[in-house]
Amino acid sequence: MIGNIISSPVFMKRISVAFAALMLLAAVLAVAASVGETAIPVGTVINTIANHLWDAGHPVDAIDAGIIWNYRLSRAIVAASCGAALAVSGAVLQALLRNSLADPYLLGISAGASTGAVSIVILGLGAGMLSLSLGAFIGAVAAFAFVTLLALQAGRGTGAIILAGIAGSQMFNALTSFIVTKSASAEQARGIMFWLLGNLSGVRWPDVWLALPVALVGLVVCLWHARALDAFTFGRESAASLGVPVRRVYAILIAASAMMTAVMVSIVGSIGFVGLVIPHAARFFVGTRHGLLLPLSALIGALFLVCADVISRVIVPGQVLPIGVITALVGAPAFALILCHGRILR
């Protein structure tokens, strides 16, 4: 039976599409590693990667190799992981909450991460033992726990968690503003504001080993529940009538989305519009079936954020813009276009 499945045309087509998607992503990552203030040929990028992975022995300038491996390639992989995770989280939340405007930051995770980050940098919590990313992660988890408890206390239903997320976001955003205004120096305030808009400048390989597995595991968990997500699109009652264990699946998918968002925000800061716009863009191509929607959202999200990062590095010569500025400049018009064409999920 397994042999018949593997040899079936449908299975082979899916394998071919997946391979082509991976090749496209690899090509974009290679281009991203070659583009910057100092342009480096794509061939040099490929040789550098081959030298590090397989000790190929290609002659590559040491400075170019250092720029590619230690800075640009790790940055591009984290950008791809972040884009994929946020896009998948957005698609999941839009189905679970049956709200076309739902995105990963709806649950207050971004606001909590901001509060955690400024508490470490400005207030010095942790006595120097906690990094900015770890502080942001702790804040994100705390915000998600607060929103969850508030939603449970307020009542059941998607409306409760949406309203709890709004309340949590406002509270943690207010705390962040209060801390920055009261205790930050001008230099600290500038650094925090840059991070809050999304910053990939400090990303290195240790961040890759955190971001990439989280994005992959989150995608697998969500894909495992793709049929349940299809049922949730028609409401929790419909899902229950189809035999879906509503509470368990709901909790697993909300937790997976929150964890992916918390990890990504803790590494790169707040990056808007990815989780909101990308799932709607993916529906243009494959419709609402989550078995196809989730992997396509991950691919488009990864490509979009890698390209946005490249633009943020080259659009202003000698200066790196926060990546959140680029995603907003592209995402807001794109969302308006999708909205005007009536393709928002209902």
Rank of each mutant, 00 (worst) to 15 (best):
M1R: 04
M23Q: 00
A30N: 00
A32S: 15
V42S: 01
G43Q: 03
T44I: 06
A50N: 09
H52D: 12
H52F: 12
G57Y: 04
H58G: 00
P59R: 02
G66R: 08
Y71K: 12
I77M: 15
C82M: 11
A102K: 03
Y105H: 15
A113N: 08
S114H: 13
G116P: 06
S119D: 10
I122L: 10
G124Y: 12
A127N: 14
S131N: 11
A136H: 11
A136E: 11
A140P: 07
A142N: 03
L152C: 05
G155A: 10
A160R: 13
A174H: 10
S177V: 10
S185H: 06
W195T: 09
L200V: 06
S201Q: 15
V203H: 09
P206K: 12
V208R: 08
L223N: 04
A226Q: 10
L229M: 08
T233V: 14
T233A: 15
A239L: 04
V246N: 07
V246T: 13
R247C: 00
R247P: 00
R248M: 12
A256F: 03
I271F: 07
G272Y: 08
G275K: 04
P279Y: 01
A298S: 07
L299P: 01
G301P: 01
V310F: 01
Q319V: 15
I323P: 04
I326R: 09
I326G: 07
F335A: 05
A336E: 01
